[in-house]
Design a protein around this nucleic acid. Structure first.
Lengths: 341, 341
DNA sequence: GTAGCACCCCGAAACGGTTCGGAAATTCTC
DNA sequence: GAGAATTTCCGAACCGTTTCGGGGTGCTAC
């Protein structure tokens, strides 16, 4: 059905070898021949057979991602977003991106193993890094290329793309400090995640530099959902020394914070200032949120560097080139005022 | 790295041919040999190379699904659910399920084409059927097996799994008719979808059988989200002859209906009866909904039949065996009372 | 004139499976 | 006990691609 190299060879009068080399742009094929071959390939509607390619060269051009088994609903929408983004980024680079979902209770490493043994994938995008990630250990042992979205250590020994979350935490805190706040609360992401730890570090650094003692009651770890933001706010504002400024780990938390403050009859920024880190997740129903100051870094910006990083890893580029750090913007949009207490 | 047939052959003293046949359970291999081969395969930790298999036999054991490009957020969560379910169903059958997302604006047929030409997939699960589905036409032309979730015609000529949505529409309407209602509104799914059309047909049939004239103002097509349910309710209840019973296409619509009724100061079931078809989508924040009567059919029940259908199609089973219809339950849980007007 | 060098090309082997046709060993049949 | 049938096995070809090693031009340099 589909045309093969043999067909092109027959149609051009060349050997299969030379056709293959022409299509792969090797340098011992004359320019004229390359053109001729490409035209023939086009005319015959040729598409390389990835299975055959994988078998012969060890590379299929297919990369994958394993969706972790737990389904925490708020993230599902982000997953779809991510799959779309990565699909596009890889297909622009002539690769095929594919996703496989681990089953509830299935061992994630075993799933990777199954995919590698199947012998169809060239490498993996990993998400949700852990400190000493067993997936990384396994893939390294098998010599399978990978790239991590985020990182599990300050300076990991594997390819990754991440933003400087220490700087994010620092900047968010600094924005409030500059307005004169000294009691600054932080509703952060899940404690186990590295990015939340980094942001916490940034928060602590900024406070310490300003000569402010760190009050652990003003920090909260939790899922990045509305209810966590609301609960943490209610707790902190009812505490002994209520904060005058609040930091939200993302927009959903911010939504919870705004709701809780409104329940308490507190105005933003009159009574409480709020800053937020915005991942710019589309589709979330956040129209209703007032404009907020803070940091901003679209999650969608990570797909391209991730694809680039994984392909680099597959092609054997040195580690230094495969560890990329993304930036973030600073947004000034109201929601900050000097403290009134 | 990974063991191959050759290794097993060497370790058992058999030929590669016989090892292959033993592992694939052919009938000209002695029982004793089969056992011996399987043990050796186990000991060597053998996994078949899917690329090689695909090349030799035309089948890799990998099947896929292409995620349509539009991202309507309410469905994203369902997609993830579905991917998880299908992954499990196929892996239980020794197949690998994989997902590829089409990019915004990309032609869905072209994406399938790319995946087929790549020569790694055996078949596809299709979702969101259209009337004369171009994907079906293309796959049929290429001879690629498929199974549809839902169907694009009353009696399609391709494998599918669906529930009897005419019966659903009929039963929901009948439940209200039995309680004495004669003005029954229906907030249905998107007009272009086949299941919504079927349910509408069921609604019309039930009304007609009861000798009630059909009032098009009492029917609404729209996305299955809360706001659609609320808006439709407000419109209908403010109409000239407000309905005394309402049918919700799913739980999110029901949520909108309950909210709107509560805004209008109407009680359920005192003032208005409500029935709903429940897909039992997990993760939706529906705890707050009062228990409702209606029909119920878990979406999660479709993954197994779909996997079975696609594998059947790949193995060349006759069409009749590949067209499956699922059932639904009837739920009596209050929310219905005789009309008070 | 020939050694050296680009440049362009090709045959054959390999990747890891499946499958076809035949062959050896065993059992059955009369 | 010969021939047929059955069971169990194997060699070889093949799927579509890449890659290794070699080979034949034609040109330059001495």
């Amino acid at each position: 059905m589909s045309a093969t190299l043999k067909d092109i060879a027959a149609s051009t009068g060349l050997s299969v070898t030379q056709v293959s080399r022409a299509l792969n742009d090797h340098d011992d094929v004359s320019a004229e021949t390359k053109i001729r071959v490409r035209e023939a390939a086009n005319a015959l509607n040729y598409r390389p057979n990835l299975s055959a390619r994988k078998l012969a060269s060890g590379r299929s051009g297919i990369v994958g991602l394993v969706l972790p088994p737990q389904d925490r609903t708020p993230r599902d929408s982000m997953f779809v977003q991510m799959v779309r983004g990565l699909s596009g980024a890889f297909s622009r680079r002539g690769r095929l991106f594919v996703l496989h979902a681990a089953e509830e209770g299935e061992d994630v490493v075993a799933v990777h193993r199954r995919l590698i043994d199947g012998g169809s994938l060239d490498g993996f995008v990993l998400i949700e890094p852990e400190e000493n990630d067993p997936r990384v250990a396994y893939l390294r042992r098998r010599g399978v290329p990978m790239v991590m979205h985020g990182r599990g250590a300050a300076k990991p020994d594997y390819p990754f793309y991440d933003i400087d979350n220490i700087a994010v935490g620092r900047e968010l805190t600094a924005m409030l400090l500059r307005a004169g706040h000294r009691r600054i609360g932080f509703v952060n992401g899940i404690a186990a995640t590295c990015y939340a730890a980094h942001r916490r570090t940034g928060w602590e650094m900024a406070l310490r530099e300003a000569g402010i003692e760190i009050d652990p009651d003003l920090h909260e770890h939790g899922q990045m959902i509305e209810s966590v933001g609301a609960l943490a706010t209610l707790r902190m504002m009812n505490g002994e020394a209520a904060p005058t400024g609040l930091i939200a780990g993302n927009m959903l938390i911010a939504k919870g914070i705004y709701n809780a403050l409104s329940m308490l009859g507190l105005k933003v920024p009159g009574d409480v200032s709020v800053v937020v880190h915005d991942d710019m997740l589309p589709g979330e129903d956040l129209m209703s949120l007032p404009a907020s100051s803070g940091t901003r870094s679209a999650l969608a910006l990570s797909w391209e560097p991730l694809a680039q990083g994984l392909i680099g890893a597959i092609e054997g580029k040195p580690l230094a080139e495969l560890q990329q750090l993304g930036g973030f913007e600073i947004v000034e949009a109201g929601s900050i005022a000097p403290p009134n207490r």
